[in-house]
Amino acid sequence: MSRLSIWIILGVTLTFLIGPFLIVILAGASAGEALSFPPQGLSLKWYAKVFTVESFRASFALSMFLAIFGTLTALLIGIPAAYALNRYDLPWAETIRTIVAAPIIVPGIIVGLALLRYIVVPLNVTITMALFMVHTALVLPYAVRVVSSSLNNLRGDMEEAAVILGCTRFQAFTKVVLPNIRGGILAAFILGFVTSFNEVPASLFLSGPGVRTLPIDMLSYMEITFDPSVAALSAILAFLSVAIVFLAERLLGFSRYV
């Protein structure tokens, strides 16, 4: 391929990747009253306004809660699951792997609907609880995947060595396995956090009065108020995600695990 065509492909790709990002940043920095691009003049007032909107604060808190505790719960289930799948000859290993991966494959919208129709309504589960369950389930596949791949790099004989030196199986796990897959666990946490924080389809069905995740709240805000503050908020969130991934890459070599 010629040099020129490579540059063209690269340019188009970057435009599609970074273009929307730039548009959102600039749209949020508009001095006008309505969301538009190009912005009508430049100001930071919409960026400032984001922090004063009451519902954003509540939904941000909920999204943070779901992302942090949903991911932690997924790890709590996912690490032992990955370990068991990796180290023991389980009879239904393939089936278990498929079930664990299901939430990635099944469209979130179906998961949300099913949960609403068959669990939330009949069992009278609170919306927050249902959201928590969905987010945990959605993050679980990533937790198992990423932790599995770092377990694969860890030879089994290390644990046996620990046992021979006097560890119980459990001690061998905490003293030898966990410290050596720390990077993988952190990577899984970040991946899970971002996945949960950005989740829309399933959460769409699971919103109640005053209970909405941030992305859903932004959608409904936009239905009523068409000002640039949503763009400003999007830009802030995008920066946050990039910062987290950048830090993780810097500190841990995150991309090794994904």
Binding site: M158, E160, V163, I164, P179
Partner: peptide, 19 residues
Amino acid sequence: PANKRGIGLVFQSYALFPH
């Protein structure tokens, strides 16, 4: 159990703890 036998084992791969 292996952790109560008072036996030492040097593995072919050494199985040292990398951390």
